[in-house]
């Protein structure tokens, strides 16, 4: 994200000795303002880390490593948060598993298959998908989607309950608001960003490589696997990580459709809970260590998503740089 510095002359024309006059005050103030605005990003990030950790400190000190146990009982003063960490991880993984093939498929469709003129309406649809607010996904999710899919869950569960592996994941209990429903809704929400980043990465594949594959008599799919994919795989991995981070942090839709039940279970159709959802739902009434615990979940979320985003952006930038550098 950097370019060569622009030329900067010494001073305005007409001043007494232009070549040695100091830079006018206005110019320096402007530069300081610009720098300060840029620094604001770093300042905010640091402040977030510091202030939220501070608010959460009583949780960390009271529970210590017990925060990673599955024992969440505010009434009794237990705040082991493993169930929420589990829920966050599971729903994000479900979302990514569903969204990635679809997003990569759309990215390939747009970049390699569809002629330019037809790509605009498709991109428009993806943008439309991105602009739907998460609360509307949640509203539709809990009032329309969940009741409908509950029937499907019930039939699947009764069918596979006794089959070893399938029953483990898809057996009873089932509920419209569940891990799986949350995963589906999250998948819808992260598709736009994974698609657009994958497209960006795939667009950097040199045309000459694609021609090389075609010249050997490859079909379009063979060209994609031979020339496009090896160049883009790093970038797509980065895009997937970004989608994962986004899915982990998504709050409102999750809060509405995950089922609000702090349990760890392998049954994906069962109700569950995740970190952002429990914060959203219970922060209002919480106080003392309870509130500190919820704040602490926020700290964990912050740390996880920062790490994932740093990794993801690093990977994407590295593969882009490798392409540009030759």
């Amino acid at each position: 994200m950097s370019t060569a510095v622009k030329a900067d002359p010494a001073g305005p024309a007409g001043s007494a000795n232009p070549l040695t006059a100091r830079r006018p005050l206005g110019d320096r103030v402007f530069q300081i303002l610009a720098l300060a605005s840029g620094l604001l990003v770093l300042v905010i990030l640091v402040l977030i880390a510091v202030s939220t950790s501070q608010q959460a400190s009583s949780w960390f000190s009271t529970e210590g490593l017990k925060i990673f146990t599955n024992d969440w009982d505010p009434a009794a003063g237990h705040f082991g948060a493993l169930a929420f960490i589990y829920g966050t991880a599971i729903t994000a993984v479900i979302a990514v598993i569903m969204a990635v093939p679809v997003s990569v498929g759309i990215a390939l469709l747009l970049n390699e298959v569809v002629p330019y003129r037809w790509s605009r309406p498709i991109v428009y649809v993806i943008d439309l998908l991105a602009v739907v607010p998460s609360v509307v996904w949640g509203l539709w999710g809990i009032l329309v989607f969940a009741p409908w899919i509950q029937h499907i869950y019930a039939s699947i569960a009764s069918g596979v309950n006794d089959i070893p592996v399938l029953g483990f994941f898809f057996g009873t209990p089932t509920s419209g608001a569940s891990f799986f429903t949350c995963g589906i809704i999250l998948a819808f929400m992260i598709t736009p960003i994974v698609t657009s980043l994958s497209r960006e990465v795939m667009a950097t594949v040199p045309q000459i490589d694609k021609e090389g594959a075609y010249a050997l008599g490859a079909t379009r799919w063979e060209m994609i696997t031979g020339a496009v994919w090896p160049h883009s795989q790093g970038g797509v991995v980065g895009a997937v990580l970004l989608g994962l981070g986004r899915a982990m942090g998504e709050t409102i839709a999750a809060a509405l459709v995950i089922g609000s039940s702090a349990t760890i279970t392998s049954r994906l159709f069962a109700p569950g809970y995740d970190m952002p959802a429990v914060i959203a739902n219970q922060f209002g009434e919480a106080s003392g260590v309870f509130r500190a615990a919820l704040m602490g979940l926020g700290v964990l979320l912050f740390v996880f998503t920062i790490i994932i985003n740093v990794l993801a952006r690093g990977i994407v930038e590295r593969s882009a740089r490798r392409k540009r550098g030759g």
Binding site: P206, I208, E211, A213, Y214, A215, L216, G217, A218, P230
Partner: peptide, 20 residues
Amino acid sequence: PIAVRRRIGMVFQKPNPFPK
């Protein structure tokens, strides 16, 4: 065209080995 290119190969101006 795929059958055509299988029989009629092409070498380009700038070498373009795949990243494999």
